[in-house]
Simulated scan of single mutants.
Amino acid sequence: MTPPAVSTPEAPTRADQKTAATTSGDTTAAGTEGFETGTRGGEQKHIWEQIALGLFIGIPFLAVLAAVPVAWGGFLGWRDIVIAIVFYTISGHGISIGFHRYFTHKSFKPNRPLKYALAIAGSLAVEGPVVRWVADHRKHHKFSDRDGDPHSPWKYGTSLGALAKGLLHAHIGWLFDPEQTPQRQYAPDLLKDKDVVKVSRMFPYLVLVSLFLPAVIGGLWSWSIEGALTAFFWASLVRIALLHHVTWSINSICHAIGTRPFKSRDRSGNVWWLAILSQGESWHNLHHSDPTCARHGVLRGQLDTSARTIWFFEKMGWVSDVRWPVKERLEARRVSAGA
């Protein structure tokens, strides 16, 4: 991640954060440094974290490149497809519903078991622990497509070359930035939540679960080593890589192209062909126009499986205070026909 040049208020020093936390009464933030271990990420990314990140991005991506010849060779069965779809659906909605719409934007209030389930499901996407993910995304919204945004494709300018460089940065380059978003500043509420911190501490173990549980299921289902290996390839490596790049495409593609029917202070757009794979996250223009709205695909024909799942949770009595779209609020944000 090439850090954007921001002033002290956007990138405070550790001493500044301690002082601010103390004066604001945030004893969790101002206390010991243990929260950094608890959330698996301090304010500087260590070299071993950079190496691990490269491996967790590179190895699944190589699996995607090998997917066609592997499938052509007969090493793809219906069991692999079923396991991959199930794990993609669970981990993908863990990101879209849990990490994004709940933990970042508080679009609804879940009961405690569902809160745990969403935090664990999102961690299975292997996109980082929940507190780190939320801090980065909240900073993105604060500075969206402006100086200070961790992953804007417009970081280097608007020329074709600058946009190409910016798209690479927004999609994947920003992940390698050694400068980390201050968790005390952007996610103090999560640092005070013992349940969330507990799941963040579990992140390395949940990564192992995400990687090897599909293989265990595939092996037991087929009662063979080959079944375990093919499930690991498709439902672990390929599934993780696909979900990674779909999520990162919201940062890059959905801030470079797409329709913009709603007013927003950035360049967020709706990209319809990403809607199913992103669980409705690619209806990105409305999200940046009304970030706390629990439904992103608010117009006719805009499929949003995350919103439908939240609706199901509400009907089951597992969530409350859902911030559904309000007609008057939407109309006030619509771009006029003559604009």
Rank of each mutant, 00 (worst) to 15 (best):
W78R: 04
Y156N: 02
P12E: 11
G258Q: 04
W272A: 15
H171P: 04
I97H: 05
S123T: 08
V298G: 06
P261G: 05
M202K: 03
T247W: 02
K115H: 07
K115D: 08
F203Y: 15
L220E: 06
P153N: 01
A228S: 11
S224I: 03
I225K: 01
G25P: 09
A29M: 12
L167P: 00
H105L: 11
N251H: 07
L190K: 13
T2Q: 09
V207E: 05
R101E: 13
S320H: 13
G301S: 05
D195I: 07
G219M: 06
F312D: 03
H245W: 15
Q279K: 05
L208T: 10
L160G: 01
F103Y: 15
S252H: 01
A215H: 09
I97E: 06
L286S: 01
V199G: 09
V86E: 02
W273T: 07
K109A: 14
P261E: 02
D321T: 10
W311Q: 14
H100N: 10
F176P: 04
R323I: 15
V68I: 15
T2R: 09
V130Q: 13
D136N: 14
V82H: 01
K139M: 15
L299D: 09
V238E: 08
F262K: 05
S96K: 00
W133M: 11
D177K: 03
D16T: 10
V86R: 04
S210Q: 12
L168N: 07
P188W: 11
K139E: 14
D304S: 07
D80L: 01
R333G: 03
R201W: 10
E36F: 10
W174L: 06
G173K: 05
L55R: 00
T13L: 11
V216D: 08
S222R: 07
T19H: 08
I90C: 08
V64A: 02
T158M: 01
E10W: 06
F312V: 15
